[in-house]
Write a protein that binds this DNA or RNA. Structure first.
Lengths: 206, 206
DNA sequence: GGTTTTGTGATACGAACGTACCACGAAGTT
DNA sequence: AACTTCGTGGTACGTTCGTATCACAAAACC
């Protein structure tokens, strides 16, 4: 029976099953058996490709981060067609809000991992948790470009602003996730803050 | 042996033990036996005062919310001595940042509960999770007062601003919690945003 | 072609968990 | 004084979980 199989591919399939089932039932409620069932393989196989649950979780986080990074990039690039850096900045921030199933799952699981990371050094060491975040650098750069194009109000510090906006987006995301706030209201808040940073469109063209 | 005992008091003691041990080891890792040990009582007693683990968790969340509310109120009122509404606003926002053990535990556990609430209707229905938040109303009111005193830049929408600031504070708090960011850097970000909302102090007095 | 590696299944094991049960002594009640 | 209620201890039960073990067939290798 054993055809030679691509380990990396198999691991990805299983980790995807992990993400799916954890998104549905919560990361805390997911066991090896659930992942196996969701992936349509035996428990043994999950053990075979990942030796331990911790390794599976770690890989799941990597996958999650990678997939979400791709999603955000795609959205930002798609917004690149629209003229002006604001469209890209908005795309970056809005992509992180839990507006559809995919981003909801992402927010949910990322927060779950963040909570686990508080007591788990191995998780805390993962780049996606630990890093000053590629997103912050990217957003800072976008803000700088807007600044050079004289699109921003004076007195804006690009780096601090980027950090604040991302934190706000994350915080709003959690609010949406737990049902405190609608996606529309979250994006209204974000929009208002962007309005206070960008100079008014009319004034610029006039 | 059985002296008559105050149930409410006992329940509080046990729930405090839950909060302590969960803050140390993570909510997901806490069992009834751990709570019993931490509270210095038998497993049976935890069962006696709370029939089920779910009820214990629910009560723990209530306690957490109540205690933290008191903390924030105390800080805000203490800042009331300093002239100007900005001090109070800053106190409100900074009190939520995980700068010491107490606020760290609060952030950690609140986030844990929020994650659980995604898949647990009983938790999601808890006021502290569900409500548009007393904090948002309070902050909105403070901003309105500042606005009437002509302390804010024009174009600020008090309610949207309040929501954004709270979300930012929460997001920054998570960053601090997982070690992405230092408390100092978080409060710098918050401070910068407040600076952009408040009119410059020099200009006001001059 | 024999042998080692590789992929897969089934199942067992020990620990931990939430909960339930049994027992008993001290207060309170009548 | 008899009886009921309340607080408490100890412990057992059934489940679930992560992991380990045994077994075996198809492929790869020499």
């Amino acid at each position: 029976m054993p055809k030679r199989v691509d380990h990396a591919e198999r691991r990805t399939e299983i980790a995807e099953a992990l993400v799916r089932v954890a998104g549905r039932r919560g990361l805390h409620a997911v066991g090896m058996r659930d992942v196996a069932a969701e992936a349509g393989v035996s428990l043994r196989l999950v053990q075979y490709y990942f030796q331990t649950k911790e390794k599976l979780l770690l890989f799941g986080l990597e996958l999650l981060a990678e997939r979400f990074g791709e999603r955000v990039s795609a959205r930002v690039q798609a917004a690149g067609d629209t003229p002006g850096p604001r469209a890209m900045i908005e795309a970056l921030l809005m992509a992180a809000l839990p507006t559809d199933d995919e981003s909801r799952t992402f927010h949910h699981l990322y927060t779950s991992y963040a909570v686990l990371a508080v007591n788990d050094p191995a998780l805390a060491a993962q780049p996606f948790i630990k890093n000053p975040d590629a997103a912050e650098d990217a957003l800072t750069e976008l803000l700088r470009q807007a600044q050079e194009a004289a699109l921003l109000e004076p007195g804006v510090d690009a780096r601090l602003e980027a950090a604040g906006l991302l934190a706000m987006s994350a915080g709003l995301g959690t609010g949406v996730l737990v049902g405190q706030r609608s996606p529309e209201s979250a994006s209204a808040v974000l929009g208002h803050h962007l309005n206070r940073i960008f100079r008014t469109g009319d004034a610029v063209s006039g």
